[in-house]
Design a protein around this nucleic acid. Structure first.
Lengths: 189, 189
DNA sequence: TACATAACAAACAGACTGTCTGTCAATAAT
DNA sequence: ATTATTGACAGACAGTCTGTTTGTTATGTA
C-alpha cells in the first residue's frame, strides 16, 4: 500500500462512514451531499473523484451493510450441522441485522428506488440472496426438504418473507420470526 | 357537482394520468415536474394548488394503482367458495397485476423510498394487505389452515413472498407462482 | 531531477422544486 | 342584479442541490 492509496482509502472510508450515518438517519433524498462532505471533513472534489455520483456512494454504503449482514449469517450458521437448523438460524440472524433502523432505511426502504431494479437485483443477489439459496440448496441436497418447486424458488419466497419482516416491526417481530420458522418446519420432513 | 369541482376533478385526473405514465417509464427521481406538466397540459400553479408536493402527487398515483390491484383480486375471488382456492386465485391475480412494469416500478421499487416507511406502510395496509389478511383469516376460520402463528402473521409472510415475486421476473414468474401455491397447500389441511 | 499522474480544492453552471403574487371565473351574499 | 368572496389556476422567481470544470498540491516514476 503506497501512501497515495492509503490516503485515498482513508478519504473513501470517511465518506462512506459519514454517508452511512446520514442516509440511515434522514434517508437518501433528504441527505444533501454538502452534509456528507461536512460530516466527513472532505471537499466536493474528493467525493466526485472517488465516486461517480451520489448514488454510487450510496451503493458503496449498501455493499458495506450487506457484507456485514452476510457476515452475521455466516457467524450464526458456521458450526450448525443440520441444514434446516442452519436455515433457521441464518434467517433469524439476517432478519435481526436488517431490522435495525439503519439497515432497514438504507437497504430495504431506499436501495431499490435509488439503485434501480436491475442494479439492486444484482447487488442483492451477490451479497445476500446467494447465501440464502445456498442454505436452501444444502437442505434440499440433504433430502431434508419437501418442496417440489425447487430450492431456488424457495429461496426467493423466503427472501421476500424475510424482507417483509425486516420492513415491518422493529422489535416486536418475534411473532413474525417464529411464524417464519414454523413455515420452514412445515416444509421439512 | 358544480362546474368548479368538475374543472378541478378534470385537472387532477390529467395530472395523475400524466404522472402515472412518466413515473412508470422513467422512475420517480428521473421524472421532472416540468415533464408532468407538459404531458398533462397544465401549469405549475395548478399542480401545487391541488397537491402539496411531488410526493403527494405520487401518492395519488399509488392509490389509483393499488385500488386497481385490489379490484383485480376481488374479481378473481368473487365467486370462489373454497377459502384456500380463493387465497390461491387472489394471490395469482395480485402478482399478475403487480408484475406489470408499471405497477412494479411505481409500487414496488419507488413507493417505499418516496413515501417513507410509515406512510407506505399505512397505504399498503389500507389498500392491499388488509385484503390478503382477510383471505388468510377466512381460511383460518374455516379450519382449512394449520398455522399456529396465526393468520395475520401468515399474511405478512405471504405478502413479502408475493412482493418478491413481483419484483423479480416479469413474465417468467410461472415457477415462482406455482411455488407459492405449493407453499400454501403445504399449510392447508 | 524532471515528468506524469493521482488526490484533492474551489468556483461555477444547470436543473429542479416549491413559493408567491396576481388574475379570472364561479359561487355566495345582500 | 350587483357586489363580495372564494376557488382554480398562471407565471415569474428564488433557493437549493448536484455534478462539472479548471486549477493546485502531493506523490510516484523514469
Amino acid at each position: 500500500m503506497t501512501r497515495n492509496e492509503l490516503r485515498a482509502a482513508n478519504t473513501k472510508a470517511r465518506l462512506v462512514a459519514a454517508a452511512r450515518a446520514l442516509f440511515a438517519r434522514d434517508g437518501y433524498a433528504q441527505t444533501g451531499t454538502e452534509a456528507i462532505l461536512a460530516e466527513a471533513g472532505v471537499k466536493r472534489g474528493a467525493l466526485y473523484h472517488h465516486y461517480r455520483d451520489k448514488a454510487d456512494l450510496f451503493e458503496a454504503v449498501c455493499r458495506e451493510l450487506a457484507a456485514e449482514a452476510a457476515e452475521a449469517v455466516r457467524v450464526a450458521t458456521d458450526d450448525v450441522a443440520d441444514p434446516i437448523e442452519a436455515l433457521e438460524k441464518g434467517s433469524v440472524a439476517w432478519i435481526d441485522y436488517m431490522a435495525r433502523p439503519e439497515s432497514r432505511q438504507i437497504l430495504v426502504v431506499d436501495a431499490p428506488g435509488v439503485l434501480g431494479r436491475e442494479r439492486w437485483d444484482a447487488l442483492d443477489r451477490e451479497l445476500s440472496f446467494d447465501l440464502l439459496r445456498a442454505g436452501t440448496a444444502a437442505a434440499a441436497d440433504a433430502g431434508a426438504l419437501r418442496f417440489a418447486a425447487g430450492s431456488e424458488v424457495l429461496a426467493v419466497l423466503l427472501n421476500g418473507a424475510m424482507n417483509q419482516i425486516a420492513m415491518r416491526g422493529g422489535n416486536d417481530n418475534a411473532e413474525l420470526k417464529s411464524g417464519l420458522i414454523e413455515l420452514l418446519r412445515a416444509l421439512a420432513r
